[in-house]
């Protein structure tokens, strides 16, 4: 059932992320629904499922953009495993945790993807644009991650995949 929930969530998130408009103030960064999903799995599930979510989310996200395949998967996997490693040290149901981790995860993956694209000379944006993009990703990550977490938690609780939120 968890696998079905993951696939369903990935489908919906990928399509919505590609459809929702972007804004100039966030450096035209898309709404980070996929990184919100990776954060949810990193905080709530075992390591194998974290990796599965990270790899699939990255694969779908890269496929729907011009990003070289595997770049985002790698970023998500590393970030997901780091969060999974330290999740026992934080309160995983607190929205402040989701805001902080969501912002850092999204900004980190954006920074990594940007570095890879610059290395391969696939993009040539001005420095200001790059800085704005990272800051925008940080802000959007912090805004979107708690929403995605709450929705996924409700969805999986309904399906019986996880226990109801205790806080």
């Amino acid at each position: 059932m968890r696998q079905v929930a993951l696939i369903f969530a990935l489908l919906i998130a990928s399509v919505l992320q590609a459809t929702l408009p972007t804004t100039a103030w966030s450096g035209w960064a898309p709404a980070p629904l996929m990184s919100g999903l990776v954060l949810y799995y990193s905080l709530m599930h075992r390591r194998a499922l974290v990796l599965e979510a990270a790899l699939l989310a990255g694969l779908v996200e890269d496929s729907l953009s011009l990003m070289p395949l595997g770049t985002t998967s790698f970023g998500f996997a590393v970030a997901g495993l780091i969060i999974e490693r330290y999740r026992d040290d934080v309160m995983e149901h607190q929205w402040t945790t989701h805001v902080a981790f969501g912002a850092m995860l999204n900004a980190g993956v954006t920074l990594f993807s940007m570095a890879m694209l610059l290395k391969d000379e696939l993009i040539h944006p001005p420095l200001f644009h790059m800085a704005l993009r990272v800051i925008g990703s940080f802000g959007l990550g912090g805004l979107v991650a708690p929403l995605v977490f709450a929705l996924m938690n409700r969805f999986e609780t309904t399906l019986g995949g996880v226990e109801a939120e205790s806080s």
């Binding site: 990928s14 399509v15 694969l59 779908v60 890269d62 070289p68 395949l69 595997g70 790698f74």
Partner: peptide
């Protein structure tokens, strides 16, 4: 190894994977 292979796949192979995902998601999109 899986990640390294994914990151270094030849362009023709990655295009095939990307096209499959795009075609699959097209009706939903």
């Amino acid at each position: 190894i899986l990640l390294l292979v994914l990151l270094n796949l030849p362009a023709a192979q990655t295009l095939g994977v990307k096209n499959a995902v795009r075609s699959g998601l097209a009706p939903l999109q």
